[in-house]
Amino acid sequence: MKPQCLSKLQKGEIARIVTMDQDAPVCQRLMNFGVLPDKQIRYIKPAPMGDPLEFEVEGRAFSVRKTDACRIKVLPINGL
């Protein structure tokens, strides 16, 4: 399966982070925040107007904008 955009996950879906665009400022920020490749990420939900999106990594929730989220490629983990 090909890694997909983080923003393409279904609500509540869990995925593993495969790559993060290291040139993107948002990824640099997120990596400092503790979001790193290989970690599990869960898409909680979008804001009422569709943007930004809320995610959770290791019990810590945060939100980023859709365009920024797409700098992260993930593989959904099935059956969890």
Binding site: P25, F33, P52, F62, V64, D68
Partner: peptide, 8 residues
């Protein structure tokens, strides 16, 4: 513009 990231 810098990215938006806020912890909940």
């Amino acid at each position: 513009s810098k990215p938006f990231l806020i912890e909940m």
